[in-house]
Design a protein around this nucleic acid. Structure first.
Lengths: 145, 145
DNA sequence: GCGAGTAGGTCCAGTTTTCAAACTCGCTGG
DNA sequence: CCAGCGAGTTTGAAAACTGGACCTACTCGC
């Protein structure tokens, strides 16, 4: 690949950026853990799904654990790193709900009773991160914007 | 494409899920607005970049506005819908910073003075959305997990 | 006026991915 | 014995991506 700006967004996309990877994670978060069920729900070709699962396991996002000996059968579970991708899926879902659908196909109820509308806040001050409120700082000045 | 679960995540990926689309948005958020500069920074082939920009404009995420007549020159600006994708990029970046890099290549200072560590909270109760705290509800029972 | 440079693309041929369907392997249940 | 399931692998054709060359329309320095 050509040279590109060093960036954690690009790095993350190197793990979950290929087609279907995020949808696989969605199924995992819904509790779907078996190859055939994931294939059905995401609509991916089986060879592509096999490749994505391998990649996600290799990257430490999923774990491949046997649930049956003879014949050997495996299921896929999220690791802690996998769990920590949940915010990414929630923000993707929130945007789609707002701009692409009339009726959200899936909603989440939060513990507090409300339907979850995820909001991204600054971990320090707990206020919402608004467009103008951020100043980037580049570690490598060669790539400063 | 095969049938797949109806889902706002998939819908959103239909807009920004192709290779380079998210990196284009990253550049836009850094304030980079011109074709050549975006091409350099994301490392995409120029024809692919042209296709991505067309798609993002068509989807209402970016606007193509002239900044020069004779010769006609255009720049790309985020719409409100585009701005609202910022949380997606922030959560992607946060995950990469945590799991894939030692030194974050880019950090953001928030208005409050702190380095931003984005946290996703429930819009209603303002508490962090934790793994076990969500219950999915499916509009179409055929696709319930 | 002439060549070089800039900006925003398009076009091309070669490589890589993706696709849908068919097939394999090891079992289980009737 | 035969059918079926689960988890993949194989196959051959279609689609997407790749890096680079090229095109158009200017502007600048000489």
């Amino acid at each position: 690949m050509k040279t590109q700006r060093p960036c954690s967004i690009a790095a993350t996309l190197g793990v979950i950026g290929e087609k279907y990877s995020v949808l696989v994670l969605r199924e995992i978060f819904f509790g779907v853990r078996r190859f055939d069920a994931i294939a059905r729900n995401v609509g991916a070709p089986r060879d592509v799904l096999a490749a994505r699962l391998r990649r996600l396991v290799e990257a430490g996002v999923l774990e491949r654990v046997p649930y049956n000996e003879r014949p050997q059968r495996f299921e896929y579970r999220p690791t802690q790193a996998g769990q920590d991708l949940r915010p990414v899926l929630l923000t993707l879902m929130a945007w789609g709900d707002r701009y692409l659908t009339q009726v959200p196909p899936v909603t989440f109820a939060h513990d507090c009773g409300a339907r979850v509308e995820p909001v991204v806040v600054c971990g320090a001050c707990r206020r919402e991160v608004l467009p103008g409120s951020l100043t980037p700082h580049f570690t490598d000045p060669e790539w400063a914007a």
